[in-house]
């Protein structure tokens, strides 16, 4: 118990500490792939440090929602991170049915973020909020399809146990897992507002989704939002890595090695996708998400019928 709790706390700390590094890694790799030198690996840390020291400016007409929403965001992200197995250590929070809590905790952060965006009373933020609400709606089924199907196959309802149950079985199961991971990747891209859905580097308010929601935040608020954004990206990265971890329970060292290589590979994958993909039209995004869902459905059908 004691050791397990310690491991859990260590993994939360790892997530909290390393998530900006992961974001920096993705950006660096993307820069290299597009033939630039790019910002240093630790750039996100520098930016956060800079933001932390600035004064907080709230928009006129904003209310208490804008003030607490960044906090709610960070807290929910930490709680979500505490449910994930990092390097296959047992997480702090793990109980039957926590997969639902995980999805809904992320829903809580989204709820407050949308409210905070609408709180400013500017139509830029409103636009971002409306898009976020719409796309989140189509993104939710993907999560439930991919993790729900593994859960139904294994019979577990705890995220840790679900991810733990992924093991070498036979070829059709492996294909199943690979396709699951593809749809989770598509989900991650949407949720973390990465390239084919949302361009983190765009400079036009009208084309932003996530960025425009935090357009009027600054100082500490922006710091919190960005930090929770990094954590969210890392959370999805961990989910993705967990798919390719068929050696569960084979020692901590191996776990850590796989975790690190997995992060590197995933960062490269994200970088590659961001380099080669062009961004979708806003009205095609629900279609893209439905496509990911379709993959999930097909996958499940095929897997259940081959058994």
């Amino acid at each position: 118990m004691g050791l397990g709790l310690l491991q859990g706390i260590v993994s939360v700390l790892v997530v909290l500490g390393l998530s900006p590094l992961f974001a920096g890694l993705v950006n660096k790799l993307k820069a290299i792939l597009t033939g630039r030198i790019g910002a240093p690996l630790l750039q996100p840390y520098y930016e956060m440090q800079r933001l932390f020291r600035k004064e907080t400016i709230n928009a006129i007409g904003s209310s208490f929602i804008s003030r607490i929403s960044p906090l709610v965001n960070l807290v929910t992200m930490i709680i979500a991170a505490a449910m994930l197995p990092v390097g296959f250590w047992k997480p702090v929070i793990s109980f039957d049915g926590d997969i639902i809590l995980f999805a809904y905790i992320l829903g809580l952060s989204r709820f407050f973020q949308i409210l905070a965006a609408m709180d400013i009373g500017s139509s830029f933020e409103g636009m971002g909020a409306a898009r976020e609400a719409t796309f989140a709606l189509f993104a939710e089924p993907i999560f439930f399809f991919s993790f729900g199907s593994i859960s139904f196959i294994s019979g577990y309802t705890s995220l840790y146990m679900i991810l733990h149950s992924i093991q070498h079985q036979n070829i059709s199961y492996e294909v199943f897992i690979v396709i699951c991971s593809i749809s989770v990747f598509m989900l991650a891209v949407t949720e973390c507002s990465r390239m084919p859905v949302d361009d983190p580097n765009t400079h036009l308010e009208l084309t932003m989704i996530h960025e425009v929601m935090i357009l009027d935040n600054s100082g500490l608020d922006l710091f919190l939002y960005q930090y929770s954004g990094y954590i969210k990206l890392f959370i999805y990265a961990i989910l993705e890595i967990s798919f390719f971890y068929p050696f569960s329970g084979q020692g901590y060292l191996l776990g850590i090695i796989i975790f690190i290589t997995g992060s590197l590979v995933l960062a490269t994958a994200l970088g590659v996708v961001e380099t080669i993909a062009s961004r979708y039209k806003m009205k095609n995004i629900p279609q893209y998400l439905l496509f990911a869902t379709a993959i999930g459905i097909l996958n499940l059908l095929i897997y259940t019928f081959t058994r």
């Binding site: 020291r53 004064e55 907080t56 400016i57 709230n58 928009a59 006129i60 009373g121 500017s122 009027d216």
Partner: peptide, 9 residues
């Protein structure tokens, strides 16, 4: 570090 309100963008 200070706090103030300002117009929205």
């Amino acid at each position: 570090y200070g706090k103030r309100v300002s117009d929205a963008w």
